[in-house]
């Protein structure tokens, strides 16, 4: 049986590792290479590295650093941040990255997703969708580059992204980011029912129970940041990942 993937999500800012809370208050948590090495030793299912400053700063991916990341990963590596062209994607794949994750470029024009999927296959391109609810509790599509909500139906954007060729959707709840207070299960349920491709849910996981709840709500995989880099009430930096037997017991296989 296919296992549910549990994916540490590492955020980069100016080549350092950070963790945000509700997409703000980026706290430095260490050196990315060191963290990736530890995660690889812990045999994580997969790893997602997102450079949250790249699109905002109009920067290129840091290829040299990403190549070092790939050199440490004997598991799939997904990179996101500042990817806007097929050529950039090609370069990343050549360095040993399996998947590129697009947000800003996909919001501008979904044809980039199609062009990458046509050349490298749908499995190699993810579209990351950030959702933020407004004061009425209505879910809105959000652009992490501009830090603003976008006037466009989010569920339709998910469907359009899949039609364009996205092999997976990364669904992030901005309001839950870094809170470790549980994931937005209603959001996950709605999104998962709408797309035929795997859904990676992110945002809010504070325990293995939260991960299980997201899976039970239809997510194919769960990604988490704070859960795997922070420890205890004071959020001391400690890199952890559950043992395989723990995950097996959690998912009851």
């Amino acid at each position: 049986m296919l296992k549910h993937r549990v994916i540490p999500c590492l955020l980069m800012l100016n080549d350092g590792l950070v963790k945000t809370s509700r997409f703000a208050k980026a706290k430095y948590v260490g050196d990315p290479i060191n963290a990736i090495r530890i995660f690889s030793d812990k045999e994580v299912d997969e790893l997602m590295v997102l450079d949250i400053g790249a699109s905002r700063g109009g920067k290129e991916p840091n290829y040299e650093l990403i190549e070092q990341f790939a050199g440490e990963c004997f598991m799939p590596l997904c990179y996101g941040g500042g990817v806007r062209t097929v050529e950039q994607a090609r370069r990343l794949f050549a360095l040993g990255v399996e998947k590129v994750c697009l947000q800003s470029a996909a919001l501008d024009d979904l044809s980039i997703v199609t062009r990458i999927a046509e050349q490298f296959g749908s499995q190699s391109v993810l579209v990351s969708v950030d959702i933020k609810s407004n004061w009425l509790g209505k879910n809105l599509l959000y652009s992490s580059r501009s830090g603003k909500a976008i006037d466009r139906p989010w569920l339709q954007f998910l469907r359009d992204a899949v039609t364009a060729g996205a092999g997976e959707i990364v669904l992030n709840s901005v309001d839950r980011d870094g809170t470790m207070q549980g994931m937005d299960l209603a959001l996950i349920r709605e999104a998962s029912a709408a797309v035929p491709v795997p859904l990676v849910a992110v945002g809010g996981a504070g325990s293995l129970k939260d991960i299980k709840a997201a899976i039970d709500s239809g997510a194919s995989a769960v990604s988490a940041g704070a859960l795997f880099v922070f420890h205890g009430p004071h959020r001391a930096v400690l890199i952890t990942y559950p043992r395989y037997t723990e995950l097996e017991a959690l998912f009851g296989s």
Binding site: L2, D45, Q123, G167, P198
Partner: peptide
């Protein structure tokens, strides 16, 4: 069916 395509992830 709720099974997804591609078959993506770890399997035995």
């Amino acid at each position: 069916s709720s099974l997804k395509i591609p078959h993506m992830g770890w399997n035995t």
